[in-house]
């Protein structure tokens, strides 16, 4: 009996001592991984936790990068492409390019001409306008060239596919020589392109400035005699190896000269692209005085 009483006493004591543990202590036991650290190490769980932590850090960095990227100005090439299209949108009614027209097959003809002359992997966009307000223009795109040509001019001049392609090629060379960009670009553009404006409002005044310069260059300033001379000499150099093309270009300039002298509707052309008459002279062989 004595033994039984002692045994029951011991059991009740141990139960009492257990109930004495604080709740926090119990929780700490659960949270304290030290007791099972070895098991965790063996399972590689602590390594997995470290990896997870690294992944979170990398993700956070990427997220910050993306967030910074949202506040970037486009690169210079992208700005040129964007501004060219924006200028065409702003002048949609004036240029009247949204109209139904027949398929002239200009793209195929122009592509063939470019390839025949050795221009490979060149992207281009051609826009036909139903207005005499603008006869032709070559504008910079994002790693491509945007070529504009007037359908009323094509019709009134009765231009063939080859003649249209030669005009487009001349425009392509003019743009390639950098005259347009030089005349239109601003200091702000080169300063701002590709930079970040996080924490500030984006400054789009430079695009508005570019749009004004586009209009002025296309409608008023045009190109100088010197620039036209350089372009004509380049055309001469590229076409010389193909007499058929050279003759077609020479005849085209003569045709334009005669047309523009008699047609008032396109009188501005000579001021902007001086001048077919001079181009013919520059291309003509020197007259020898005997």
């Amino acid at each position: 009996m004595k033994m039984l009483a002692l045994f029951s006493c011991l059991i009740s004591l141990s139960v009492y001592s257990q109930s004495e543990k604080l709740q926090e202590e119990k929780e700490l036991e659960v949270v304290n991984f030290n007791s099972i650290k070895k098991i965790l190490m063996q399972d590689g769980l602590s390594e997995a936790a470290k990896k997870k932590e690294k992944q979170v850090q990398i993700l956070k960095k990427e997220q910050a990068k993306v967030e910074t990227g949202r506040y970037m100005y486009p690169s210079e090439d992208e700005i040129w492409g964007f501004t060219t299209e924006y200028w065409l949108i702003k002048n949609a009614q004036l240029l009247d390019w949204d109209f139904e027209k027949p398929d002239y097959g200009i793209d195929k003809s122009f592509r063939t001409l470019m390839q025949d002359l050795g221009f490979y992997q060149k992207k281009f966009k051609i826009l036909l306008v139903n207005s005499p307000n603008i006869v032709r223009a070559a504008l910079p795109g994002n790693q491509e060239v945007v070529l504009i040509i007037s359908v009323p001019f094509i019709r009134m001049m009765d231009l063939s596919k080859l003649e249209i392609s030669l005009m487009l090629f001349e425009d392509f060379l003019r743009l390639d020589l950098g005259y347009f960009k030089k005349s239109v670009a601003t200091e702000k553009l080169t300063k701002i392109a590709g930079s970040n404006f996080q924490g500030a409002k984006p400054d789009i005044s430079f695009v508005e400035e570019l749009l004004k310069n586009y209009s002025s260059q296309i409608n008023e300033k045009g190109y100088s005699f010197q620039q036209m001379f350089e372009v004509t000499k380049k055309m001469d150099a590229y076409l010389k190896s193909n007499p058929e093309l050279w003759n077609a270009y020479f005849r085209l300039l003569g045709k334009m000269d005669r047309f523009l002298k008699t047609n008032i509707q396109f009188k501005e052309y000579i001021k902007l692209y001086p001048s077919p008459e001079m181009q013919v002279k520059w291309l003509s062989p020197d007259e020898k005085v005997l």
């Binding site: 949108i89 702003k90 949609a92 793209d107 390839q115 060149k122 051609i126």
Partner: peptide, 21 residues
């Protein structure tokens, strides 16, 4: 109207690329 015209512009462009040499 600008969004509309931007869409129309893409339709009106005659796009091309010369081949790889």
């Amino acid at each position: 109207s600008e969004l509309y015209y931007w869409g129309r512009l893409n339709d009106q462009f005659i796009q091309g690329e010369t081949r790889v040499k």
